[in-house]
Design a protein around this nucleic acid. Structure first.
Length: 466
DNA sequence: GCATGATCATGC
DNA sequence: GCATGATCATGC
């Protein structure tokens, strides 16, 4: 079959019409004859097979979109299925590699990023671990252009990334630097994937522009028309984004008038009388200050994968509590590499901290700030993660059991690391996950759920006081 | 007093 | 039933 006869390379509509036929089928079903004809050997990834055997084109030069004449770039990406039956993106969407040596000469509008990725043709398939990728079900196919309000933020993200390169800090780039468009690592961590940067002799990890997982989720809900009215926007007037301040400053400006006020005073200001014991009490206050309806999620934060943490400081500036993250499964942790671990993913996120501080019995709003962890501190947290993986792999878990039945563990302690430690996070001691290796001392084959925590001292010194 | 371990409470 | 934010209990 002549590949070129399948669709008109110059026509977006024709390409789309052909692409839509992928929906509700699999690569194996829809292009088995081509795969056989080409003698497919099980090599290549999803995107490569899709390009070569379904669309039947040879890759263009790397700087042009895949369908050059139509100006549209093909991207395939995995979905995961939630417990509630909804689909979410399994990961970030990786776009073109950042060429450190060239990108600093570009403006956004004529940039290689925008030239290649302004118009995307997206193919979302359901990733199922037990299946060959040829058998993944294709769930969603559509094209994507960025709405103006998103594009304004993406342009700022692009500029922030490029500015960091201009400042000679390509080696300090982090996904947490930006909102929708990130600079994610790409390729191995080995020395061979280190790249030169133009304004510093230090080599930097190879990185690519990418759409944050949260932004991809937004795309998915848009193209599947499943967006429900659960989101409220901070920036209801897109014009505000023309202002010279950063997004961070624009968000922070909402909170500054309330610095120094007690919880009650802030509530009163908005005519609210909230339940102080409600689990979402602080989230409600944040929404009120940002002008968002109380029961809604903050659209911009969701799209940017921002982790919001409220911290209550004692009068000596030390947080009352450490900060917890979701529990990990022991069996999964030992199979992971640091590079694709959930903990690293979390630490590379952008955080929004809301600090309250006790003055006597009153809690007052102290300050808010966006923050992401410096690379050097992420490497310190990596030590904790590695130690955790090591103790579980060896079944070296319980050190002793006290008279009252409390188990002392070999897990990484707060005093052993400046950044992070591991502590229980469970309903009670019998709320457990299975262990891959039975504990040497007790023979236990499951253990109380634990998670990684950020140390209070670290929060005070490196986040609040910085 | 603080680090470590254990558990509670809310909301979906 | 479970995730998550919050808090309590133990022991040095």
């Amino acid at each position: 079959m002549n590949d070129k006869a399948k669709f008109d390379l110059k026509s977006v509509d024709s390409i789309l019409e052909y692409a839509y036929k992928l929906k509700n089928t699999t690569l194996r079903k829809i292009c088995s004859s081509q795969i056989e004809e080409h003698g497919y050997q099980g090599k290549g990834n999803y995107g490569q097979v899709l390009e070569k055997y379904y669309f039947g084109y040879k890759p263009n030069s790397v700087s042009d979109p895949d369908f050059k004449e139509a100006g549209i770039e093909l991207k395939s990406s995995p979905l995961k299925l939630l417990q509630n039956g909804e689909y979410r993106s399994k990961e970030r969407l990786v776009l073109n590699i950042i060429n450190y040596l060239e990108v600093h000469k570009e403006e956004f509008e004529n940039s290689s990023f925008w030239h290649k990725n302004a118009h995307l043709l997206l193919v979302f398939y359901l990733h199922e671990a037990e299946k060959d990728f040829l058998d993944y079900d294709i769930k969603l196919v559509d094209d994507w252009r960025y709405p103006d309000e998103d594009l304004k933020i993406i342009k700022r993200d692009w500029e922030a990334i490029v500015q960091k390169i201009k400042n000679g800090k390509a080696h300090e780039l982090s996904e947490g630097d930006t909102f929708y468009l990130g600079a994610c690592t790409k390729g191995s961590t080995a020395a061979k994937s280190m790249r030169e940067q133009p304004f510093n002799n230090e080599k930097a990890k190879q990185r690519a522009f990418s759409l944050k997982q949260g932004y991809v989720n937004h795309i998915i809900s848009k193209i599947s028309n499943e967006e429900k009215g659960v989101y409220g926007k901070i920036f209801n007037v897109p014009e505000i984004l023309e202002f010279p301040e950063s997004i961070e400053e624009l968000v922070e400006a909402n909170f500054i008038p309330f610095y120094g006020l007690t919880l009650n005073q802030i509530e009163k200001n908005f005519g609210l009388s909230l339940n102080n014991n409600a689990k979402n009490y602080f989230a409600n206050l944040t929404n009120a200050i940002l002008g968002i309806e109380l029961d809604k999620k903050i659209e911009e934060f969701e799209k940017a994968d921002i982790i919001v943490k409220t911290v209550r400081l004692q009068e000596n500036n030390l947080p009352k509590e450490n900060i917890s993250f979701p529990t990990f499964k022991y069996t999964e942790l030992i199979q992971m590499d640091w590079e694709d671990s959930e903990f690293k993913n979390i630490l590379e996120s952008k955080f929004f901290f809301v600090f309250y501080q006790y003055e006597g019995d009153d809690l007052i709003l102290k300050k808010v700030l966006f923050w992401n962890m410096p690379q050097s501190d992420i490497l310190e947290a990596k030590i904790v993660w590695n130690r955790m993986k090591d103790t579980i792999t060896k079944g070296n878990i319980v050190k002793e059991v006290t008279e009252k039945g409390i188990r002392k563990t070999y897990f990484p302690k707060q005093l052993e690391n400046r950044v992070s430690h591991v502590r229980p996070h469970a309903r009670n001691a019998s709320d457990t996950y299975p262990l891959p290796v039975a504990d040497n001392l007790t023979g236990l084959t499951e253990y109380t759920k634990h998670c990684f925590w950020l140390n209070t001292g670290y929060i005070r010194d490196e986040i609040f006081l910085k």
